[in-house]
Structures are given as structure tokens and as C-alpha cells.
Write a protein that binds this DNA or RNA. Structure first.
Length: 577
DNA sequence: GCCGTTTTCGGCCCGACTGTTTTCAGTCG
């Protein structure tokens, strides 16, 4: 029986596992890294890798050659990779798990397995408690302690939870403001994943050019504790538990350190590999030239990238997804900016679960420069007790039109965020939907119906002539809830076909579509939207998170349709075509 | 295992830290 083709994330998982197995088997590290690299490339691919493989084109992806093509083909056709099946008989799953403990890598895990028979976290705990690890050459009491600590940490929560970007930035922007008050002349920048505007961050990285500030961080109101870790570094913790790493550097070297700490690790590795081919060695301290044996430093990142023969690369693009090649060819995209957005097409009022009235929200949107605003309260079966019945919606449409007539300077659109029922039907009948200016359809209930049913459900909504767009397609909540099972590729294809738009929901908890799906949708020719999903006036400001997701998806303003004025956008809707 | 302004072999980013070591391997970011 033909199986559904494996998703990109499933293929990536299999390649990661095989890399781990080869590593335990003692393969040369570069072979292992090739598998890990391939896993990331597959995970980030903007198209279905299974489909690409079937079409014989998978080796077009950088890092996938003939061998990996065959392994992916095996996975698609048989559901597994023969090499992995074989290695699994030699290395138990518990051993693989051990290599993921902090402080324990494949080399030492393998020795524990070979010499002490340790093949699971439980066996490691018992051996550490019995102080049997120190009998091995190169292992000592400190290592036993470290392992017990790592095991204790790992047990209650499988992995340390990361902080969503909004929570990290709330602290980061406040911290930068406080530091700038201490020294208005200093250069102070965020680096790391928060500067790349990633979905979540582990900690905050701050780069500054005044080392004296490192000693004064502890005196700031939002800091719980701080300590100097070296001449040029300090670490701190905020009262709400965000870790901050601060680094100070001379102004003439600021660009080097900022670039280094902004990352990502993959971007930096790819950048350095490319530089080596030109006889240049890049580190956080400078660029060493083989030919002259001199190290050049740079005050700014622009000059640093320039010295490597590259255009400046925006932080959001620095994920090794082709940006270095594009920068070398002068082919980087012009990315969308917050100011490009002309209107917001997904918001809530007190008619459903919002906290604000139509008029308040309209004025707040006008203040933010929006030319139009769709009020899209939840429909009749939202299921949380704050839904809008058909009669209430008829009244709501009148209220929105009245407010539109009263308030100048912004166009108010009568809309709805219509629930997609488990069988694909919508909450309101077509006559009522046709009375609305704007309809966005979303799934809010029955997440666990399985990929096939969920895909059919959403495809039914996408094909409805009165559904203008689909909201938060995968239902994921960052760091809290995995996306429900759904064939995103199939939905993208259907939207490209029907002219249904796809939303990038800007709520910092959602950012759904994510950047990989958004890039795939744009590549398929689907029109995208960036909406706030605001439930209050302040919620309108969430748009920047959606814009950052769009930038990480390489999108320009022309691919995001709410950069258009409403009349131009309205003409693009499928119901008017 | 991949890849080529080193094209079919011989390389493959850079540095800090840790614990156990007398010079370094392993791990991490």
C-alpha cells in the first residue's frame, strides 16, 4: 500500500538519527556533519523534499549528493533507511539519548557503553552514584557530578524551554535603553538570535564598546544579579529569568564581534569556509589574511562583509539558507519593512474575545498609520463562549459600517474569522458570508483528527469561493504546542490554484505560517498577508513579529498583499476575479 | 559524505572552556 510521502521534518529526523548512529560507530566527523547539514537543509527546504526526490532533483539542494539521495529514496519507498536499521541493532536507543546530555558527547558515551555497558540514562545514573565512572582513564569525580546534574535537569523537562522573542525583547529593549542612559555615546547592540528575530531565544547577547558598562549592569533595576566573567565580558540575569551575556570590545573591532555573536552558527561556518578559499580567516577578533599575515578589524559589519566580497546581509537572513551565495552574486532580495504594511486584516473586539470596541481599535490602527482595518471576530462555534451568532454578526456588520462612516482617515472592513468545522464546513451560510467585506478562515478545535482529515478539512475551506484567506494555518504555539498534523504543501498548492491567500499570523506566540512555509508559499505564487490577530489596541503592535517572519522568509513587499491599498488588494481577491 | 577561482582527490571555520592532564581530547557555541 502506498504510504503518504514523509514530510521534510520526518526526513530530517531520520538523517539526524543516522548521523548520530554513524558518530557512535566512529565515522570521521565530516561524514557525520554531512548528515547533520543535510538534515538542516531538508528541514529548511521551501519545497517538499519527498516530491523533489521523486522528481530526481533532490541533489539540487546544497549538501545532498548521490549517497544521501539514495538514503532519502529508501526512506520514501520503504519507510526506513537500511543503514539505520543495521546500526540500531548495535547501539540501543538509550545510548543515543545519552549523547544528547549536556557534557556528554559521542566519544565518551561510546566508551561508557564499551567499557562499562552503560546503555541508558538510568544505567548512567546508577554508575555515577556508585562512583564507577572514575575507574575509567580520563573520567573523574567532577564528571560523575556533572552527569548526575545533567540527568536531574533532563528528567522533569525534556529540554530547557526557550523564551519567545517578545518576552526576550521586552527585556532586551529595556536593558539597551537603560545602558544607553548610563552612556549615551556608547554603541550598544543586541546580537544573537534576538537580533536575527528568531521565534525563540535561549538568552540575550549584548555587544557594547564601553567596558565600564559591564560593571554597572548589576545596578540596573531590571537585573536580579550580574557578575564579571572576564575583562571583556559579564553575565547577568533579569528578575523574570532571562539570561544576558554582555561583551565589550574596542570600537574599531565592534563589527567583528557583532557579526560573530549575531551568528547563526551555520551562517558563520559557511561564511568562514568561503573566506578560507580566498585565503582569509574570519574570527570574532578580525580577518587574518594569509598573503600579508595581517589581521584587519572593522568598526561595522558592512565593511566586514565587504572585505569578504559580499553585500551586507540582513541579520534575519543569516541562517545559511543561500544568503551568502546571493550576497556574493549581488542577488539578495529587498526585504519587506513594517512601514510597507498598509492595513491589518485580522483583529478582534468585545464582540468576541477582544478587549476593545470597534471605534477604539479603529483609532489605534489609524494612529499606527493603517489605511484600513478588518474587524474579524470569532464565528458561531469558536467554542470558548465568546462567539458571534449569525444574528449578532448581522448587527456587527451594521456597527462596523456605522463606525466606518463616523471615523475619518481609515477604512473599516466588516469581516469574520470563520471557524472551519472538522468536516470542512464553515460556521455561517454563504448568504451571510457574502455580506462581509472580508473572510478569513481558521481552525480552532479538533486538532487531533490526523493529517489526512485535517488536510481535507482545510482544503475544503480554501476552495470555498467566499474564503479570502486562511488564518494561522498550522495552529502551533511556539515552545508550547506543536503544529497539528497537516499537509502544508498540499494546502499551498491548493491556495496557489484557487487564489486563496495565506496569513502570516504575527502573534509572537504563533508566527504561523513559519518562515519556511511562508517562503514556500511565496515561491508557489501564493499571496501572503501579515496580520496582527490583535485582541486589544496594543495587540496591533504585534505586526513587527509577522514582518520579521516574512523577512526571515526572504519576502519583499510585493509578495505581501496588505502592502497594497485596500482597493488594489480587493481587486486581487478571488471573489472579485 | 560533499564539493570545486585547490574540479574527481584532499580537504572540510574558529575559538573558549573543562576536566583530567603534564600536552590534550572532548564538548560547546
Amino acid at each position: 500500500m502506498p504510504q503518504a510521502p514523509p514530510s521534510n521534518s520526518r526526513i530530517a529526523e531520520a538523517l539526524d538519527e543516522l548521523g548520530d548512529l554513524y558518530e557512535l560507530d566512529g565515522a570521521v566527523i565530516h561524514r557525520v556533519l554531512a548528515y547533520r547539514n543535510a538534515a538542516t537543509v531538508v528541514r529548511d527546504a521551501p519545497v517538499s523534499v519527498a516530491a523533489l526526490t521523486s522528481a530526481g532533483r533532490v541533489t539540487e539542494l546544497a549538501g545532498i549528493g548521490a549517497t544521501l539521495e539514495q538514503k532519502i529514496r529508501d526512506l520514501i519507498e520503504t519507510g526506513d533507511i537500511p543503514a539505520a536499521v543495521k546500526l540500531r541493532t548495535r547501539f540501543p536507543a538509550g545510548l543515543l539519548e545519552l549523547t544528547h546530555l549536556p557534557g556528554l558527547g559521542p566519544k565518551r558515551a561510546r566508551r561508557l557503553f564499551d567499557e562499562l555497558g552503560i546503555d541508558s540514562p538510568q544505567a548512567l545514573r546508577e554508575a555515577a552514584q556508585a562512583q564507577r565512572l572514575r575507574s575509567l582513564r580520563g573520567f573523574g569525580a567532577k564528571f560523575e557530578e556533572a552527569m548526575l546534574e545533567a540527568l536531574a535537569d533532563a528528567a522533569p523537562r525534556p529540554r530547557a524551554r526557550r523564551t519567545t522573542l517578545d518576552r526576550a525583547l521586552a527585556v532586551g529593549e529595556q536593558l539597551l535603553g537603560a545602558l544607553r542612559e548610563l552612556d549615551p555615546a556608547a554603541r550598544i547592540e543586541l546580537a544573537g538570535s534576538s537580533r536575527r528575530r528568531a521565534e525563540s531565544v535561549k538568552d540575550l547577547d549584548v555587544v557594547l564598546d564601553n567596558p565600564e558598562l559591564l560593571d554597572r549592569v548589576g545596578s540596573l533595576e531590571l537585573i536580579e544579579s550580574a557578575s564579571r566573567t572576564s575583562a571583556g565580558a559579564a553575565t547577568a540575569r533579569t528578575h523574570n529569568g532571562v539570561r544576558v551575556e554582555l561583551r565589550a570590545v574596542a570600537p574599531e573591532q565592534f563589527g567583528n564581534l557583532l557579526q560573530h555573536l549575531t551568528g547563526s552558527a551555520r551562517h558563520n561556518a559557511a561564511l568562514r569556509e568561503r573566506a578560507v578559499r580566498a585565503g582569509l580567516h574570519v574570527s570574532e577578533y578580525g580577518v587574518l589574511d594569509d598573503a600579508t599575515q595581517t589581521t584587519r578589524t572593522f568598526a561595522g559589519e558592512e565593511e566586514l562583509y565587504g572585505a569578504l566580497g559580499l553585500r551586507y546581509i540582513e541579520p534575519e537572513l543569516r541562517e545559511d539558507r543561500g544568503e551568502i551565495e546571493a550576497a556574493a552574486a549581488g542577488a539578495l532580495p529587498k526585504l519587506i519593512e513594517l512601514d510597507d504594511i498598509r492595513g491589518d486584516l485580522h483583529t478582534h473586539t468585545t464582540a468576541s474575545d477582544g478587549t476593545t470596541t470597534i471605534a477604539e481599535l479603529a483609532l489605534a490602527a489609524r494612529e499606527r498609520g493603517h489605511a484600513y482595518l478588518a474587524i474579524t471576530d470569532h464565528s458561531a462555534t469558536h467554542g470558548f463562549g465568546n462567539e458571534v451568532s449569525p444574528d449578532q454578526l448581522r448587527r456587527q456588520i451594521e456597527l462596523i459600517h456605522e463606525a466606518d462612516a463616523e471615523i475619518d482617515g481609515i477604512r473599516l472592513l466588516a469581516g469574520s474569522e470563520v471557524n472551519v468545522l472538522p468536516d470542512g464546513r464553515l460556521d455561517y451560510d454563504d448568504e451571510l458570508l457574502a455580506a462581509l467585506d472580508w473572510v478569513i478562515a481558521s481552525v480552532h478545535t479538533a486538532f487531533s483528527i490526523g493529517s489526512e482529515a485535517m488536510t481535507a478539512r482545510v482544503l475544503a475551506a480554501a476552495s470555498h469561493p467566499l474564503v479570502d484567506a486562511l488564518g494561522h494555518l498550522t495552529g502551533r504555539m511556539i515552545e508550547r504546542r506543536a503544529p497539528y498534523a497537516i499537509d502544508v504543501d498540499a494546502v499551498i498548492a491548493a491556495c496557489a490554484d484557487s487564489g486563496t491567500l495565506l496569513e502570516i499570523n504575527s502573534s509572537p506566540r504563533r508566527r504561523d505560517l513559519n518562515e519556511v512555509h511562508a517562503r514556500a508559499a511565496a515561491a508557489a505564487g501564493v499571496g501572503l498577508l501579515i496580520n496582527s490577530d490583535a485582541h486589544s489596541p496594543a495587540g496591533l503592535d504585534a505586526l513587527r513579529y509577522g514582518v520579521w517572519t516574512a523577512r526571515r522568509a526572504w519576502l519583499g513587499p510585493e509578495q505581501v498583499l496588505n502592502t497594497l491599498e485596500w482597493p488594489a488588494l480587493e481587486r486581487r481577491l478571488k471573489r472579485h476575479r
